[in-house]
Design a protein around this nucleic acid. Sequence first.
DNA 1: TTGAAAGCGCTAACAG
DNA 2: CTGTTAGCGCTTTCAA
Lengths: 328, 328
Amino acid sequence: MSVTTKDIARICGISRGTVDRALNNKGRINTDTKEKILRVAQELGYKPDLLARSLSTGHTMTIGVIVFDIRNRYFAQLVNAMEMEARQNGFFLNISLQEKDPETEIELIDSLVGRRVDGIIMCPVNKGDKFDANITSQPIPIITVGNKISDGIPYVGIDESKAAYSAVEHIIAKGYQEIVFVCPPLHDREIENIYVHEERYNGYKEALKKYPAIKSYVIRRWDYLLKVEELYSNAKNRIAFFCSGDTYALEIIKLFRKKGIRIPEDAGLMGFDNIDTLEYVIPELATISVPLREIGEASVKLLINKINGDSAVNNLILPYHLIDGKSL
Amino acid sequence: MSVTTKDIARICGISRGTVDRALNNKGRINTDTKEKILRVAQELGYKPDLLARSLSTGHTMTIGVIVFDIRNRYFAQLVNAMEMEARQNGFFLNISLQEKDPETEIELIDSLVGRRVDGIIMCPVNKGDKFDANITSQPIPIITVGNKISDGIPYVGIDESKAAYSAVEHIIAKGYQEIVFVCPPLHDREIENIYVHEERYNGYKEALKKYPAIKSYVIRRWDYLLKVEELYSNAKNRIAFFCSGDTYALEIIKLFRKKGIRIPEDAGLMGFDNIDTLEYVIPELATISVPLREIGEASVKLLINKINGDSAVNNLILPYHLIDGKSL
DNA sequence: TTGAAAGCGCTAACAG
DNA sequence: CTGTTAGCGCTTTCAA
């Protein structure tokens, strides 16, 4: 097929070992032979077989990534940042999507490990002790992003709960007397890892404890729009909907637009994530800005450190910030 | 490190060859020994080293993908579809981003080939004979999507020029007397592969030939918003802006919103691509729907066929359709 | 400074 | 039905 070090060795009338030394500037080597080897390699259009090299050296310079899907803005931004950071460090990305299917996720991990990626960054959909043990027993470092598995497994993200807490305070400061927490993923809490959303929910609950006068309701269904409409109709006071993800808020904007409900005059709205779609949407959505680029970069850096065996750091909590917008 | 077929062989007191046959149901093998081998493999938690297998078999079951970036909705949707289709066929995706940098692109191709991917799908930023030769000389099949390199290299897409042609007719049918073609990429036509945009431009020009009474202007600058505003102010008749990508249209929507220019009352607007962001944007944008999912799937299928050596097909032109929207 | 040989883990061809 | 052997292309000792 293509040209190998063996060919070069044969043509130059020397051994493969020497060719290798020339090609990778290693060890002492005669300048003339080195030049000759490089010239021949050049002429023949030699390209190293990275697969064979990996088999021999034991590392592939590849990072495996497993996320839900990348049509999702959240992951598209995250993975884009990861790819750039990885490439700058000489690593490749092996991206695979589990589409929230637990079994696919397990298969993908095995598959990536089988391909000898040097480490994995994932947003897990599985959870629980058995899965925890699976991850821990893998021969390569694995770190999580978005959803957390357990304290033992490295995680990069923001303080979701605190962010949600501050969001609620912000809403209340705007004078709303009823707050609805829109969090469809809670519906799947038994079967899926929905760490982020649970944390956001915790922050929400925590904040409301401080304000017993505020009326509160939590939506945990995927047909949340029906409930949103109903709650809006029955509201006796100023009501705000706090969504545990911008995408839900976007759907509510569409709904309200259709129904002629004005934001924020008739109802307040707040999202979470600050996905880039918001840039083009009216009204400007109040939201929590999750630093996706920074999370992507930091997770790659952390993983590379772990791969090199020189990082004791486990959790990286980055700063978020609240965006006021015009929807409250 | 981890357990290999050699370990299994040793423990079962048989040869590696037999272990291999058991593990991959190949050739005739005694049922008892097979069971024993499988049991031991199971107990030891044997996972095949796919790298070694690839080195031996000569294929990696991996498809390399090179696109601009995946924050871009166009590519996010495209790549997402590719990943799903590939996985269903037992292939992995190796995604890398060139960020429109020609040199990075060349490096990425070499790198993917070096990693022995079985084939590549790319949206090229390079063009010209030299690049064409580079691609053709690679030892694996490469197909293009989005931008085309030459007729010799397989391409999957829509008839961009015809689509633009019909868009212009549609705009004219709505009674507009001035049309502005907003196509910033034309600015880079000398240095970059902007095939799609050139084709759209060709369709635009072709259509206008039929309507000599229509006043036309083409914007080829990245600070297009300035020019858009100027042309709008100077317009004597009903004017429409036809963008060669939805993202430009989205920016114009933002601009007009700020300036209080109403769409479509004061100016018409049409996009191209039908990216999913549009779903949440007001007004509903008239656009051309490019079947990204289908293109992604078809390109993967075509590539796999090429990898298996059984496809003579080169170009695949899929149907687009025009979306009327409320912006004209 | 260079050569020879062994090894990474798996597959495949050929004997037995 | 099973064992042996060679080989994929590169790296890495250890001698020379």
